[in-house]
Design a protein around this nucleic acid. Structure first.
Lengths: 196, 196, 196, 196
DNA sequence: CATGAATGAGAGTTCATTCAT
DNA sequence: GATGAATGAACTCTCATTCAT
């Protein structure tokens, strides 16, 4: 029990810090996500942040991993409920636009993140893993509805649209909502599949 | 006369500094675009940078304005040589992917820029102007080949693809070249127009 | 009884901590001897280190005391086995170069220690005690083989050689082994005694 | 003239900073030689220290280089006045014990320096260069008075004595003066040469 | 007794900005 | 006009020390 309590505090703190870091990241972007701000938001001194996370990169890495995990989990949940290949495609598309997270702030944060990780191989790997996971799911579902070649082409096109919609969202003055984003991609897929 | 001389020197200096800042931005990204580096690249002291531009933001603003101007001019140049509406569409698409500028570094620089301008309304306005200009050109050309409604839809889709390809380029480990990017969008447009 | 138990535990803890601190000191030098590392090596929390030792300096002081004690004991052991004055001299010399401890890392640790204690009188006293003990042993043995005056001179020279070899070892890129170090001093002593 | 003034300021500041860093180093040791203290002693903000020296290591490197230069120059000066090989030997020995610098503070500073540079290859090279220069001068002079083999042996012994005297000086409570240090080594050399 | 959570001072470094010259 | 000297705030990270539990 004592041990449990101890572990519990560490877990709570780490979670709180990851949450605080995440929110700071979303609000201020990668550059504005400073250790001091994170500590302040979590209601702790900046010293303690470095106590729980050896470095800022480690904290960021945890934040990103958690975020990716949530996306993957959301996709998996929706995939398990999908009865047909077409529904599986929709599930993957929707997983890329969580309603609550598809805001300008969040989009900007992620865009700043993508700009910055170029020089950091670890984060590149992290991202590549998530990307290819979603991509292979998508290709697999598409192959059941069209030729292999077309499946790959459509998957690439969809991936570009996803990125484009996020960047657009970050940039644009009259932002799109997640439903419209999904609908736009769905329409494209339907169009492509109808041609076959 | 004295005033004229001053103005002339001022113009030259400002232009040189903007050029230097632009190149520094493209090479090092928004974060790496420091006043010191800009001055060095321009062959001037970094002190003078603050003399001609009240702040870093003002300089950046000018840089972006100039960059947008270049894109618009490039588009205009290509448009003037286009004989058919379809060629006008190609001209606009191509203007979005200048061969020499479609590199990972440049893509990252712009992506970091888009992420950063969120909080700065002035930059938002700046961007919106260029965007709508290219968009209206595109819609106009499309309208001559298909229905108004479809023209608008295709234009939106194309704009998203453009953004997606830039972000993809910044993120991806195996980057695309500008020709493939253009070809992908052209193929999409052709497909849409063929349906009509 | 309760008090006795407490004392016993305290003794064990203090000894373990001193040992851990000593090893940490030898491995990482004075600067790398952090409370956290000491606690970790001792298998305790670093909080407890400050419970048993009021400050880092107090712990270091105990470490040095123990280290000096070990050297003195080693010397005493060898001295007790020495049959002749010359052998006693060798015993003292050898005690200054424990084979396992005469490494670059350890040499650097001690050198950093000597550099740091300058401002701390207590450590100076500590060191002086050990030094004079070994010196007086050496002089005593030498006096049986040569004049008092020469004995003192040789003892001083030997002490300087000992320090020089340690510092050399810490600095040099091609380090010496302990045997060579001992041999060098022995040769010097032999030369001096032969002259008489 | 203007350019000259500018350069002059930089030179003055750099010299002042090196001097301040040197004094801080001598007074507080390598660990206590912080950028803040250096700036404070030089009467400048700590920011300016990093303006003139890209990093602490660069500043330290300059300090050490200058110090080594002074020793080499002193040795060269004395060597040029030496008429016989024996006098050349004395010149080199004396160069190792500049009267004004052979204090406890200075000795401690250097000892801390030697302990710390172990992990820094650049400083190792720096030191090795100076060392081998003095050593080769010494061997060369000795070879003219005794066999090659003995010359090398004596040179090694002398180098160890030099290090030993500095470390001894840093440690000891009753410090030696530079003359005694020189005399001790001279006596050793005389003894060795007399044997031949 | 013992833990490890928490603090706060202080380290090096970078950089936009100001200002005397 | 132009320089670069100078400042000061901000950043990440480390660590001895304190203290509630």
């Amino acid at each position: 029990m004592t041990a449990g309590t101890r572990t519990s505090i560490e877990k709570v703190r780490r979670r709180d810090l990851v949450e605080a870091a995440y929110l700071t990241f979303l609000e201020h972007g990668l550059e504005g996500m400073t250790m001091a701000r994170i500590g302040e938001r979590a209601g702790m001194s900046h010293g303690i942040v470095n106590y729980y996370f050896k470095s800022k990169d480690e904290l960021l890495s945890t934040v990103v991993r958690r975020s990716n995990f949530l996306i993957i989990r959301e996709a998996a949940g929706k995939l398990s409920k999908a009865a047909t290949p077409r529904e599986r495609i929709s599930a993957i598309i929707e997983a890329n636009f969580p309603e609550k997270l598809f805001t300008r702030e969040v989009a900007r944060a992620w865009v700043s993140y993508y700009a910055a990780i170029g020089r950091k191989p670890e984060f590149n790997r992290l991202q590549a893993a998530t990307d290819s996971r979603l991509a292979s799911n998508l290709v697999h579902a598409l192959k059941q509805l069209t030729s292999d070649e077309k499946a790959r082409a459509v998957a690439v096109h969809v991936a570009i649209l996803v990125d484009g919609l996020w960047l657009r969202h970050a940039r644009s003055n009259d932002p799109i909502d997640s439903r419209s984003a999904v609908r736009l991609i769905e329409a494209f897929v339907d169009g492509e599949l109808a041609e076959t």
